[in-house]
Simulated scan of single mutants.
Amino acid sequence: MQYLEFKINCKEDFREILIAELSEVGFDSFLETDHGIDAYIEEGLFSRDLYQDVIDQYQEAASIVVEEGVMEKVNWNEEWEKHYDPIAVGDEVYVRASFHAPKPEIKHEILINPKMSFGTGHHATTFLMLSHQLTVDHQGKRVIDIGAGTGILAIMAHKLGAGEVEAFDIDDWCVDNGNENFDLNGMQNVRMGLGTVREVAPQGTFDIVLANINKNVLLDELEIYASLVKSGGNLLLSGFYTHDIVDIQEKADSVGFKFLSQKDKDNWAALIFEKL
């Protein structure tokens, strides 16, 4: 599998925005560096026009300079070991890779073999979702993680005592990595599904639905989420900017949800709703 490599020098404030935008046009792996980000995409999935649209949008504001290259084979574990740092969510959650020392004094430890930027805890939206999960009772609850990525939110649900956990993603790489991470965290009975929420068609209703995707997908699928959440259950959403909250909340209200709380970080937002 041949990957194209883009070493992007940019202002620090634009790293997460560029990761989010590039992930929307097919890039599936990222490394944060001292000067910006390194972004990777399979050669067969690369669209020069879509990529250039993203770069042109932020070129001036982010002072972007790009060096392009090709990587025949990528050992993501080796690359991540060079760059990946553990993440702490307060003093309750510690997200680490297998090459980091454990911290037994922290209540919830999540092991991740990091192969993508989204879903490792480094991205603000994942951090916010984990923070929100700590405020919601998961004990014995039925939980589903939509667009699960590395599976970190499903793992958090398991750590918080969920009785049943389901998860799926549209990317087969995420499915493989998610199942690997489930195994690392004692969740051998949970296997990640492949597909969109319409394709997977989850059965029954859930006490908690988690969806950290992006604004357009969330708006398109919110009506389906409404059919999946039990009355009195919770919907946790992220993957959008703070200026998108109005649109998300308006759509959620229209399909039977009540807004409960909001967290934001670095201009990203995460919301909790209750199903009426």
Rank of each mutant, 00 (worst) to 15 (best):
L22M: 06
G26F: 14
L22S: 03
L31G: 02
F30P: 09
F27Y: 09
E21W: 01
D34P: 00
S29R: 15
D28Y: 08
V54C: 07
S23V: 06
L50Y: 09
L50G: 04
H35G: 00
F46M: 04
E32A: 02
V54W: 10
I37S: 06
L22V: 09
I37A: 05
E21K: 13
V54D: 04
L31R: 06
S47V: 12
D38M: 11
A20Q: 09
S29Q: 15
T33R: 03
F30C: 10
L22E: 01
Q52S: 13
F27D: 02
S23T: 10
E21P: 14
E43H: 05
L45H: 08
D53Y: 06
F27I: 08
G36A: 01
T33F: 03
E43L: 06
L45C: 06
D28S: 15
L31Q: 03
F30G: 04
Y51P: 04
V54K: 11
S23L: 07
L45M: 11
Q52R: 07
D38R: 10
F46W: 13
A20N: 13
D38W: 05
E24T: 11
A39P: 02
A20P: 06
D34W: 00
R48P: 01
V54Q: 05
G36E: 00
A20M: 07
F30V: 07
S23Y: 08
H35Q: 02
Y40L: 09
Q52N: 15
F46L: 09
V54A: 09
F46G: 06
D49N: 15
G36V: 00
F46Y: 15
L50R: 11
E21F: 01
L22N: 05
S47M: 11
E42R: 15
E42A: 15
I41T: 08
D38C: 10
Y40R: 09
F46A: 06
I41D: 02
D49F: 14
S29G: 15
E43Q: 12
Y40C: 12
I37V: 15
G44V: 10
L50H: 10
G36H: 01
E32F: 04
I41N: 02
R48Q: 09
I37Q: 05
A39I: 03
E42N: 13
E21H: 07
E43D: 03
A39F: 01
V25R: 06
E32K: 08
S23A: 15
Q52K: 11
E24K: 11
D38N: 06
S47A: 12
D34V: 00
F30S: 08
L22P: 11
I41L: 07
L45R: 14
Q52M: 10
F30D: 07
D34C: 00
Y51G: 09
D38H: 02
L22C: 10
S29D: 11
F46H: 14
S47W: 13
L31T: 03
D28T: 15
G36K: 00
D53M: 12
S47I: 13
L50N: 07
Y51R: 02
E21Y: 04
G44K: 13
D28P: 12
G36Q: 00
E32P: 00
F30H: 12
L45V: 05
G44F: 14
E21S: 14
I41W: 02
L22K: 01
Y51N: 04
G36Y: 01
L31I: 13
F30L: 12
L45Q: 11
V25I: 14
Y40S: 08
R48Y: 05
G26V: 11
H35M: 00
I41A: 01
D34M: 00
Q52W: 01
D53N: 13
D28V: 13
T33M: 02
